[in-house]
Amino acid sequence: MLTFEHVNKRRGARDILTDITFHARPGRVTGFLGPNGAGKSSTLRILLGLDRPTSGQALVDGQRFASLRDPLRSIGAVLDGSGAHRSRTGRAHLRWVARSAGIGNARVEELLELVGIADAGNKRVSTYSLGMGRRLGLAAALLADPGALVFDEPVNGLDPEGIRWIRLFLREQAQAGRTVLLSSHLMSELAETVDDVVVIVGGRIVADGTLAEVTGNHKNLEDAFFALTGDRGAR
């Protein structure tokens, strides 16, 4: 389970996150929704130890991510871009990530096949399309067969086939018992994928519940979202 307890983040005089508290549970896909700049990525970065909270804590099964000795077996994360140096090949990138977790090269080949970039494994990452870069990031996230998956805007840069693939993939991962947390600003993409929804606006959580609870009496998640955020798009 991924737990956020009263997380606050201040940069300079600006509060980026205020009292962020929610859970992402095993066996469920939790959608973390919000407009651009709402604080979704900052929240995920704090969970992954990339940024430090001003106060509060984000925990992975009760432990801080930075204290995990086998982090890649706990969480696989796909943030923006490929997360790979542009002059290294995709295969070389996955190999160093695998070595950090004590995983052999055979698993790298499995993942290159799984995400569909085996043919491009020996090409430099700089030659990859946006979608191929996302697939490479996904392969790195899955290397150690983690118990939880964290995705920041997972469908960005993917073609319709890729979007459908990732949607089915995420559902399968949750059905297999994994905790899946994904952020997005695309309501329509999320509505067909998530079990639980957390909505963040201006660095604060404004809704947290199951898809049905958050949608409430609104026609769909998108309408509920715009009603919650008070955006002009509400109708």
């Binding site: 992954l48 204290s67 982090p71 923006d80 490929s82 997360g83 140096h85 990452v125 990031g137």
Partner: peptide, 14 residues
Amino acid sequence: IGGQIRTTLIAIPD
């Protein structure tokens, strides 16, 4: 370069 630092710190967070 290429956001590799994020991959590094997720793989070796300490």
